[in-house]
Structure formats: C-alpha cells, structure tokens
C-alpha cells in the first residue's frame, strides 16, 4: 500500500488558563488511534468538522508533526524521520496559505521550485507546460502574485506543488473561497491528474461537491476517530442524508406526486421543494417531474457535510 496508517495517535498537551496565574494541563487526543491504507492512484476525500483532527493527520502524513504513537508510512518512508527525503515525493497545497512569492511574477516561484527540488530541466519544462495549459496559467506567469485573484492563486499554488512530479498530492481545502468557475477548473484538473498520471490524491474539504465530483472514497473523522471509510453513497446512507430538488412550476399546483422517489417538504406559490436520498442520482427524478409537470426552472441543493455527520451520529446513538 502506498500510504499506511496503523493505530496512529497524536496527543497534545494543552495548557489552559483557569485563573490569574493558575494553569490547567490537559491532554487532548487530536488523533485517536486511526488506521487506514491508501493504494497508489486512489483519490480520497478526508472530511470532518473543524478541529476533528484532519489537519493533524495531514501534518503527520507530510512529516510536519511526529505521531505520539502508531505506525505511519508513505511510499515506504517514515515521514517524521525522513522529512526531507519524503518532501521530494509529495506535493502539498495549503488552501488558505499561499507558498507563492507575493511581490514576484508567478514564474519566479516556479523557478525556485525548479532549483530547490533539483527538477531535471526537461521534466520541469514538460510539467510546467502541462500545468500552464490545464490550469490556464498562460497569461499569468509574468504577473506578480499579489495581483492574482484568489482562484488564480490557488491554481498557481497547485501547479507549484506538482512541478517535481510528486507521487501523492495533499490538498487542504483546495476550493475554499473560490468562485464556481474556479472550483470547476480545479476539480477538472485534479480529475485529470489522478486519471491520466495516476497521482494519488488526498484532499480535505468542507465542500461535499468536491468529494462527490472527485472521490470514489471518503474518510470521515470526528473527535480524532475514524467514523466512516467507504464510498460516498454509503456515507449518505449512513447519514440518511437527503438532497433537495427545488422546482419552479409555471403556476401554483398541488404538491408534486412522484411516488417513493421523493417527497415534497415545502410549497411556496409555484415553487416546491422535493427531498430525495442523497445517494441517488437526480436525473431520473428530474426526468419524471419534467415529463409530468409544467417546468420553468429547477436546481439541486446539496446536503451539507456537517448535517450529514451530525445525522450519522444521531442514528448511531439511537441504534
């Protein structure tokens, strides 16, 4: 297996003020005995609420943090012991923190990567050309990074992380704060990267659409524990989550009837809200509604990840 995580833990000592000079020491298990493996070429979504232990896991996988216990290998390397050797084989993109040089043209940051990673000239050329083409960076190479938009900068950051041909790419919130078009471009690129080049991708996100469009497998972490590892559809089942189809009809009509495929949860004038299982495609439902009702417009609302996880817990508790 390419990534092997076996019973890994991370315990932090947290000191908290309890009075003017009094401090209380407390141990926090940010990651509590997690185990999983990722095969070469997989694209895995890693999700969970804030503070669940996502970043800590990524930091251990990249060698930034030393685990408190358990065994961890990436490409056969122990990340915390051989951090610099591993660095040549991994790419990391921190969503809200650019590693590009603020005052310099974009290309200068790439030239630095070229030399710092000792990328052979032809490989560098080829990778850069590819990234420029697919991420549409052509006109931006000579522009100082501070003048780039958030979406442009994110694409620039992704390119910077890939110039040295990493075998695995870690992305921390790669689409956060991006507009719809930029999001689409980033996703398209990642799909292509994973599909064509077989680069292993592990991404954390708050955006369920990222996962839906990119990952065949999701891992959910909460309170430092792995609570789900499997296909996205399964997650929806486990969480019993629903998507909402918002239908605008030509005129006010009684609630739409499509049998067990969906149920109407709200009606407001000519607009109706239909809930259907999140694991199922919307296509059949849309076709059926379109065939039987005078449609003006429709849209699908995604369930939000926190809600899914929350519901999953609720069910666990009652089960």
């Amino acid at each position: 297996m390419f990534i092997e995580v076996d019973g890994v833990e991370k315990v932090f000592d947290v000191r908290r003020k309890t009075g003017f000079l009094k401090r209380e020491r407390r141990q926090v298990r940010a990651v509590d005995s997690i185990s999983f493996t990722v095969a070469r070429g997989e694209m895995v979504g890693y999700i969970g609420p804030n503070g669940a232990g996502k970043s800590t896991t990524i930091k251990m996988l990249t060698g930034i943090l030393t685990p408190s216990g358990g065994r961890l290998r990436v490409a056969g390397i122990d990340p915390s012991r051989e951090r610099t050797r591993l660095a040549h084989r991994i790419g990391v993109v921190f969503g809200q923190r650019t590693t590009l040089w603020w005052d310099l043209p974009l290309i200068d940051s790439y030239r630095l990567m070229h030399r710092m990673y000792r990328i052979p000239d032809d490989r560098y050329r080829e990778n850069l050309d590819r990234c420029v083409e697919l991420l549409e960076l052509g006109g931006l190479l000579e522009v100082p990074v501070r003048q780039l938009s958030l979406g442009q900068r994110m694409r620039g950051d992704i390119a910077a992380a890939l110039l040295h041909d990493p075998e695995v790419l870690y992305l921390d919130e790669p689409t956060i704060g991006l507009d719809v078009i930029s999001k689409a471009k980033v996703r398209e690129f990642l799909r292509e990267l994973n599909g064509e080049r077989g680069t292993t991708v592990l991404l954390t996100t708050h955006d369920l659409q990222d996962i839906e469009q990119l990952c065949s497998r999701v891992m959910v972490i909460d309170h430092g524990r792995m609570v789900y590892d499997g296909a996205l559809a399964g997650l929806h089942e486990a969480g019993g989550s629903e998507r909402i189809l918002v239908v605008d009809l030509e005129r006010e009509l009684p609630p739409i009837e499509v049998g067990s495929a969906a149920r109407v949860v709200k009606v407001e004038g000519p607009r109706q809200w239909l809930a259907f299982p999140a694991g199922e495609s919307a296509a059949g439902l849309v076709a059926r509604v379109a065939a039987e009702y005078p449609l003006v417009d429709l849209s699908v609302r995604e369930p939000d990840i926190e809600a899914v996880i929350a519901r999953m817990y609720a069910e666990k508790a009652t089960a």
């Binding site: 930091k59 990249t62 060698g63 930034i64 951090r83 610099t84 050797r85 660095a87 040549h88 991994i90 990391v92 921190f94 923190r97 590693t99 710092m116 990673y117």
Partner: peptide, 14 residues
Amino acid sequence: RDGSFDTLLVRPAP
C-alpha cells in the same frame, strides 16, 4: 502563529 511555518517543513531543505 499564522501557520505558514508548516509550509517550510514540506520542502526538501533544512
């Protein structure tokens, strides 16, 4: 404090 130190740790340099 702002977390950008981590980006230095994933580079192949001391």
